[in-house]
């Protein structure tokens, strides 16, 4: 794993200065806490607490069904690796409104910090590139984050941003963990 100097707790506010313009879905554990902290667990965010590996697919479903809304998937390296095939599905569908952010800390933070594949030899940006994502970017330092924020709105989509972060704790945020309640909250906010 190359040197990184990004504290994950400072990542998302730099990438999403105006989060309310997005529809968001997060993977579980740290990615969910960071995204809930970013948005104050808002009704335009669906956070997961299980079904590990589903975040990209949920985001793709949202992006295909709401093609005029910018959709962001915020997930972690472990969650993404559990369903790498979903990147090939994204590439085949070419959603012009989908951005994927992978917060890569090289470990399974929620279960005790056990090392993951990206701490060894795996490069998820290269995998996203090979899957066929249109725009791929890697950041490891805070001074790259302004450009990364522009990438998430301006680069040809679908986009994949790999953010290599320090192996520190995520934001301390207690979000709503009831998946049915979160579904209704999200839909009610869309008038459904």
């Amino acid at each position: 794993m190359p040197d990184t100097t990004i504290d994950r707790r400072e990542l998302l506010p730099r990438l999403f200065p105006d989060p309310g313009r997005w529809l968001m879905v997060s993977g579980l554990a740290g990615a969910a806490r960071d995204t809930a902290a970013l948005t104050s667990d808002a009704d335009y965010l669906y956070t997961m607490g299980g079904a590990m590996g589903a975040a990209v697919s949920i985001g793709l479903g949202m992006a295909l069904a709401a093609p005029n809304a910018p959709v962001a998937v915020i997930t972690g390296d472990g969650e993404l690796i559990m369903n790498l095939g979903s990147l090939t599905t994204v590439a085949s569908m070419m959603p012009g409104n989908l951005s994927i952010v992978c917060i890569d800390n090289g470990q399974h933070g929620e279960t005790g910090g056990q090392p993951g594949h990206t701490a060894r030899r795996t490069d998820l940006a290269a995998i996203a590139q090979g899957a066929g994502l249109v725009s791929v970017m890697t950041v490891s330092h805070p001074e790259q984050l302004a450009e990364a924020a522009r990438f998430l709105t301006g680069a040809p989509a679908p986009r994949f941003l790999l953010a290599r972060v320090l192996p520190g704790p995520p934001c301390d945020w207690k979000r709503d963990l009831d998946p049915a309640n979160c579904r209704l909250r999200f839909r009610n906010a869309r008038g459904l």
């Binding site: 590996g53 479903g61 599905t89 839909r187």
Partner: peptide, 26 residues
């Protein structure tokens, strides 16, 4: 109607759930 070729079946559960969140049916 639109088709979505999946790499594995479980992705489809997530895609249909995502569509439901924005009011579509898959």
């Amino acid at each position: 109607t639109r088709t979505v070729l999946l790499a594995a079946e479980e992705e489809g559960v997530g895609i249909c759930a995502g569509a439901d969140l924005v009011g579509a049916r898959g």
